[in-house]
C-alpha cells in the first residue's frame, strides 16, 4: 500500500512538475549553447529582461517597506478598521490579474478617469513602463505582509516593551529587536514577491500594449516569440524564469529549515528545565 502511494506520488510529480521543467531546459538548448546565448542577447530579449528587472526592482522594495509597515501596524496595535485593512491587503490575491490590469486601463487609459488630464500634462502611464510597474506593485503587494503577519502576531509585544523600558527608541526597537526576530519570514516574503513580480503575466499584459523592445516584460516576450513560432528562443527566455523558480524553491527550503530549527529551540526552551 505504502509503495503504491509513493509510486502514485512520484509519477504524478514527474508528469506534472519535473517533465515540464525538463522540457523547458531541453527545448531551450535544442539548437545548442550558442543559439541559447544568442536568443538571450537579442535586443528585444535584452529589453524585456531589463524591463522585468526594472519592474521587480521597483515593486519589491516598495512592497517590502509597505508589507513590513502594514504587518507591524496590524500585528502590534489595535485600531478601528483593522479587519478592513487586512481584507484590502488580500484584495490582489482574490482579484484576477486581468481585472486588476483593466482597472488601471480604466483609470489611466485614454478614455479613463485620469486619462485626459495625464494627456494634457504629457504623462504616459498606459502602454509604457510606469503602467507595468504600477500593475506589478498591485499584484505583488500582499506577499511580504502576509508572510510577516502571523510571525509578528505570534511574538507578542514583550520584547518590544522590554526594549522600551531599557531606553531604546522606536527605530532602535524595530531594527534591533523586531526585525531580527522575523528576518526569515521577511526573506521568504521578499523571495515570493520577487518571483511573482518577474513572472506576472495577466495584469502586465493588459497595461503593456506589447510594444516589442519597449513594453514587453519577459513573460510577454516569451508569448510573442512563441506566437511567432520561435519556439526554441521562447524556451531559452523561459528557462531564465524557470531558473528563478528553482532558486526560489532552494531559498524557501533553507528558510523553512531555519524557521523549524528556531521553533524547535523555542519549544525546547518552553519546557522549563528546573536549573
Amino acid at each position: 500500500m505504502r509503495w503504491l502511494l509513493t509510486a502514485v506520488a512520484v509519477i504524478f510529480l514527474g508528469a506534472f512538475l519535473l517533465l515540464p521543467l525538463g522540457i523547458v531546459f531541453g527545448t531551450a538548448f535544442q539548437k545548442g549553447l550558442s543559439f541559447y546565448v544568442a536568443s538571450l542577447r537579442e535586443p528585444d530579449a535584452l529589453a524585456a529582461i531589463r524591463l522585468t528587472l526594472l519592474a521587480a526592482g521597483i515593486a519589491v522594495p516598495l512592497n517590502l517597506v509597505f508589507g513590513v509597515a502594514a504587518a507591524w501596524l496590524i500585528g502590534k496595535f489595535e485600531f478601528i478598521g483593522k479587519s478592513v485593512l487586512i481584507t484590502l491587503i488580500d484584495l490582489p490575491f482574490s482579484v484576477s490579474p486581468v481585472v486588476s490590469g483593466l482597472v488601471y486601463v480604466l483609470l489611466f487609459g485614454m478614455q479613463g478617469l485620469l486619462g485626459p488630464w495625464l494627456m494634457a500634462h504629457n504623462i504616459r502611464i498606459m502602454f509604457a513602463a510606469p503602467g507595468i510597474v504600477l500593475a506589478t506593485i498591485f499584484v505583488t503587494f500582499p506577499f511580504v505582509a502576509r508572510e510577516l503577519l502571523p510571525m509578528i502576531q505570534a511574538q507578542g509585544n514583550d520584547e518590544e516593551e522590554a526594549a522600551l523600558t531599557l531606553g531604546a527608541g522606536g527605530w532602535q526597537t524595530f531594527f534591533r529587536v523586531t526585525l531580527p526576530n522575523v528576518k526569515w519570514a521577511l526573506l521568504y516574503g521578499v523571495i515570493l514577491c520577487n518571483a511573482r513580480a518577474m513572472g506576472e503575466f495577466g495584469a502586465v499584459s493588459v497595461v503593456s500594449g506589447h510594444i516589442r523592445g519597449l513594453t514587453n516584460t519577459m513573460p510577454l516576450h516569451i508569448e510573442v516569440l512563441y506566437n511567432d513560432y520561435q519556439i526554441v528562443a521562447a524556451f531559452a527566455v523561459a528557462s531564465l524564469l524557470a531558473l528563478l523558480a528553482l532558486l526560489t524553491l532552494v531559498v524557501k527550503s533553507i528558510v523553512e529549515w531555519n524557521a523549524r530549527r528556531q521553533l524547535a529551540q523555542q519549544a525546547a526552551a518552553s519546557e522549563e528545565p528546573t536549573r
Partner: peptide
Amino acid sequence: RERRVGFVFQHYALF
C-alpha cells in the same frame, strides 16, 4: 523610555 525604570517581565522577554 524616559522614566528610567527597570522592568522584569513575567515571561522574561529576553531578546
